[in-house]
Computed example of a mutant assay.
Amino acid sequence: MCKGLSYLPSSCLEKAKGMRVKLSHLAETHHKHKVQDGKTPQDLESLLNNKTGLEVFRGFLQSEFSEENLEFWLACEDYRVSPSNLQRTKADGIYSQFINPDAPQEVNLDAETREGLLSVMDSPCVDTFNKAQQRIYNLMAKDSFPRFLRSSHCMEAIWDF
């Protein structure tokens, strides 16, 4: 049985209030500035850098069976900060999980980007996935993120806090 908000520590309540304000601001900004010069608002970055916001966004994508773009973006972020002795292993994992045409979570990349990745997989470096990651980020910013802001996931997250 739910005991209500009074049983939560005050630090949790303060964090929840802050998240509510941020998500409300994202939704408000999106609705005021849906498309500006053909671009969507760049608040996706703020969402991806917020642990709670990221989890709400992930839940939304999972409900649409389209979380592969977010998972790829996160894998690339992890790859970028990995020690050089682990880059080869992580690069192979990213390629087999997201890039390979038979990948279980294949992301939608154009042929040029996909072929470019294949050509450098023998000697991956820290920026191997930068172009592909940016393309997927842009896809999320133009497609998934605006849908998320209009979704019940976003609205529930705003009002649950």
Rank of each mutant, 00 (worst) to 15 (best):
R88T: 10
L5N: 08
K39V: 04
G18H: 13
H25Y: 14
Y95M: 08
S84N: 08
H33C: 09
Q133R: 09
N50E: 11
A132D: 00
S123M: 01
V120D: 04
S6K: 05
C125M: 02
N100K: 15
D78Q: 15
P146G: 04
D37L: 06
L70A: 07
C154H: 11
K22L: 06
L48I: 13
N138P: 00
D37N: 02
L13A: 03
R88I: 02
N85M: 06
V21F: 14
P104D: 09
S63N: 10
R147M: 05
S11M: 01
A16V: 03
R114E: 06
L109M: 04
F98N: 10
Q36T: 11
G116Y: 09
D78G: 15
V21G: 03
K51F: 14
H30M: 02
Y7N: 01
C154Y: 10
P83Y: 06
I99W: 07
D37H: 03
K15G: 08
E77T: 05
D43Y: 13
F129D: 01
T128R: 00
L149R: 09
S84D: 08
W73A: 15
L74R: 15
N138V: 03
A141E: 14
S152F: 04
A157L: 12
I99A: 06
G4R: 00
S6E: 02
I99C: 01
R80D: 13
L26N: 07
D122V: 00
P124E: 00
S96N: 14
S119L: 05
G93T: 10
N138A: 01
S66H: 10
K34T: 07
S84V: 07
I158H: 10
H33M: 08
K22G: 05
F65V: 01
I136P: 07
N138H: 04
L86D: 01
